[in-house]
C-alpha cells in the first residue's frame, strides 16, 4: 500500500501528469469545437437541403455555406496541435 502522506512526487510523475493534461485539453479543443460545428451545420444543412429541393442551381452555393462552420473545428484542431507539439 502506498502512503500518500509521505509519498514523494518525482519529476517523472509531474511530467507524465502534464502530458496527460495537455492531451486532455487537446481532446476538449477538438471535441467541443466539433460539436459546435455540428450544431451550426445541422441548422444550415437543413435550410440548404430545403433550398436545393426547390432550386437545384443553388447547390454549389449552399454547399459552401454549409461547410463554413467547419472553420470552428479547424481552429480547435490547430489549438490541439499547438498544445501537443
Amino acid at each position: 500500500m502506498v502512503d500518500f502522506g509521505t509519498a514523494e512526487v518525482t519529476l517523472e510523475m509531474v511530467q507524465a501528469s502534464q502530458l496527460g493534461m495537455k492531451a486532455f485539453s487537446a481532446a476538449l479543443a477538438v471535441g467541443l469545437t466539433g460539436l459546435a460545428s455540428a450544431i451550426a451545420e445541422m441548422t444550415i444543412g437543413s435550410a440548404a437541403v430545403g433550398a436545393t429541393a426547390e432550386n437545384r442551381d443553388v447547390f454549389g452555393l449552399v454547399l459552401l455555406l454549409t461547410v463554413i462552420p467547419e472553420t470552428i473545428v479547424i481552429f480547435g484542431l490547430v489549438v490541439a496541435l499547438l498544445l501537443m507539439f
Binding site: 435550410a47 430545403g50 429541393a53
Partner: peptide
C-alpha cells in the same frame, strides 16, 4: 429541440415565395 424539419420546410416556403 433542434427541429431541422421545420427549418427545411420553412426554407422551402421562402424559396417558393420568392418565385
Amino acid at each position: 429541440g433542434f427541429a431541422t424539419n421545420y427549418i427545411y420546410a420553412c426554407t422551402r416556403m421562402r424559396v417558393r415565395r420568392s418565385r
